[in-house]
């Protein structure tokens, strides 16, 4: 499929027409991939502090060399069961742009697999229905070894705007008003 037919993606997603490198990881029984550009580092799961009265997708906070950053349970964010902590559980730390600043956010995954290159020609737009996730979470479907991998749109999956509006249950309108 020609690259020009790719769906328009938001900033922070893969740019059409370029071969991108992706990190693949396992969540539950599925494999997902994200563009490596946003990834700051991958750390072993340890010493997470739970924050009371938070929506359940907020797994807790960790200390990354002196800065405190939130860890999001991706599985719960996708509407599934909480990620069980195991031997291979990892926190993928991403740098996200929000309100003109860069914020580090951790993402809890069952295991990280590999960094692979997916040519633009091997990426297809997400089907308009029948996907297991909210449509805006999907940047595209990548074909790897003749199997489809869901390429996540990190800007939406970990939207601080949306997630922070869920914290404390402040109505979304008030949260938006707080922006100006």
């Amino acid at each position: 499929m020609p690259a020009a037919n790719l769906p328009a993606t938001t900033a922070g997603s893969n740019l059409p027409g370029e071969d991108q490198q992706y990190l693949t990881f396992t969540l539950g029984a599925e494999v997902f991939a994200i563009v490596i550009d946003h990834i700051k580092e991958i750390i072993e799961y340890s010493a997470v502090t739970q924050v009371p009265l938070m929506p359940s997708f907020v797994h807790g906070v960790i200390n990354l060399r002196g800065s405190v950053l939130p860890v999001i349970d991706l599985s719960i964010r996708f509407g599934r069961a909480a990620t069980p902590v195991g031997r291979r559980t990892c926190v993928v730390v991403l740098n996200l742009e929000f309100a003109g600043e860069t914020h580090a956010v951790g993402m809890l995954v069952d295991a990280v697999n590999a960094v692979i290159e997916i040519p633009a020609s091997q990426i297809e737009p997400a089907p308009s229905f029948g996907t297991p996730l909210r449509a805006e979470f999907i940047a595209g479907m990548g074909k790897v070894n003749n199997q489809f991998v869901i390429l996540l749109d990190v800007a939406h999956v970990l939207s601080l705007e949306e997630m922070s509006s869920l914290v404390t249950g402040a109505p979304a309108a008030a949260a938006a008003a707080a922006e100006d």
């Binding site: 924050v51 960790i62 405190v68 939130p70 922070s164 509006s165 404390t168």
Partner: peptide
């Protein structure tokens, strides 16, 4: 005092965080 960041900006009850001697985060 370590700020908790944008995600927790509407959080009540928790004012911020700090890092304990053992490296863990305390609220």
């Amino acid at each position: 005092i370590k700020p908790l960041g944008q995600l927790f900006r509407h959080a009540r009850v928790i004012a911020g965080s700090t890092i304990l001697g053992d490296g863990r985060v305390a609220l």
